[in-house]
Computed example of a mutant assay.
Amino acid sequence: MPPRGCFPVRAPVRAAFGLALALGTAAPVHAQALDKRVPMEPTAWPFTAIGRVNVVRGPAHRGHCTGTLVGPRHVLTAAHCLFDDRLDTWVKPHQVFFVAGQARDRNAGTAEVEAFRLAPGIDLRLATRPHRDGIASEMIGRDWVILTLRQPLALKPVPWLVLAGAELPKSRPGAVVALAGYAADRPYLPVIDHGCAVRIDAPVPGQLTDACESMSGESGAPVLVLDADGGASLVGIHTAVTGGERVGRAYRSGTGRGVAAGSIAAALDAMVRK
């Protein structure tokens, strides 16, 4: 069965974007299902640099994904979050807004988006998908977008780190892998799976496979490596799941999929470090 991608849920503003690259039918989640994610207050870096990417398609078509501030005016997230299924095309920059470090009615900074840069060759048109809510497997490694904010945010960005072929955390002694984002079940407070694992350049170069818990809304969430000395780096972004369990409109991942930092580094260098 072809993979399914994480595409927008047509629902009120409190609903999140879908997150699914599920192979096969997602099974129902039972009340006792283990959830390793825990809510957190984003009061310290790097979590102050992680936020909601809000997208408004119309009065009844709103949603969000998760993005990471990688420069004073640049945010990295999943490209599919900016695709409008109804019009079969990309949204306009003025429809996108970034809220850093949101915690209920508080945040660390907000900014409008004035432009965005998509991955070369990405194509999410309905005619190219295996089915309407699907995503072609060859598009997973291109499922990224860099947002340019209208004004800089006075926050410390998260650096990116290219680790070709790494299996983390075992190939980086003392490090901890974490996935943090704004999930559908807690859309205004981030949740984190602290202590999961990720393989870089798997199943193919430029992609990643993670064993972190996630739900819809966490599309674009950073896969972080947290070092014992307090350092943190983004080694990729989480965009989809395989073998997920259904939780309402969301999926709790069996195996996460996403984009490795190596696929995005050249564009980030050109835009952020220019």
Rank of each mutant, 00 (worst) to 15 (best):
E112R: 15
T239D: 12
A180K: 02
F116S: 08
P205F: 05
L189F: 05
K170Q: 09
L149D: 10
G181H: 04
A221Q: 07
G195W: 02
M139E: 15
A221V: 08
V113H: 13
R129I: 11
R129D: 13
L124D: 11
I140N: 05
G109L: 06
D193R: 01
P187W: 06
K170A: 00
G220S: 12
R172N: 03
L153V: 05
V198S: 09
Q102R: 15
L149H: 11
I140T: 15
L149S: 09
S233A: 15
A197T: 11
R142D: 03
R117C: 06
P203L: 02
T128W: 03
I237V: 14
G165E: 08
A119C: 06
R117N: 11
H131R: 13
M139N: 13
P169W: 04
G220W: 05
V113F: 13
K170G: 02
S216N: 13
T110S: 11
D105H: 12
L168S: 01
S216A: 14
K170C: 04
E112C: 10
P152V: 11
I237R: 07
A108W: 11
V162T: 14
E114W: 00
D227R: 08
R125Q: 12
E138I: 00
V162F: 04
A119L: 07
V158L: 10
A136P: 06
Q102N: 09
A108R: 14
R172A: 03
P203N: 10
A178V: 00
P222S: 04
P159I: 03
R106A: 13
A164M: 01
R117H: 15
N107A: 08
S171W: 04
G134V: 12
D193N: 14
C212I: 02
G230E: 08
A108Y: 00
P157G: 08
C212N: 01
D210C: 07
V223P: 00
T110R: 14
V176L: 06
A175T: 09
R186N: 12
E167V: 07
I122R: 13
V223H: 02
G195Q: 02
L149I: 07
T148Y: 06
A136W: 08
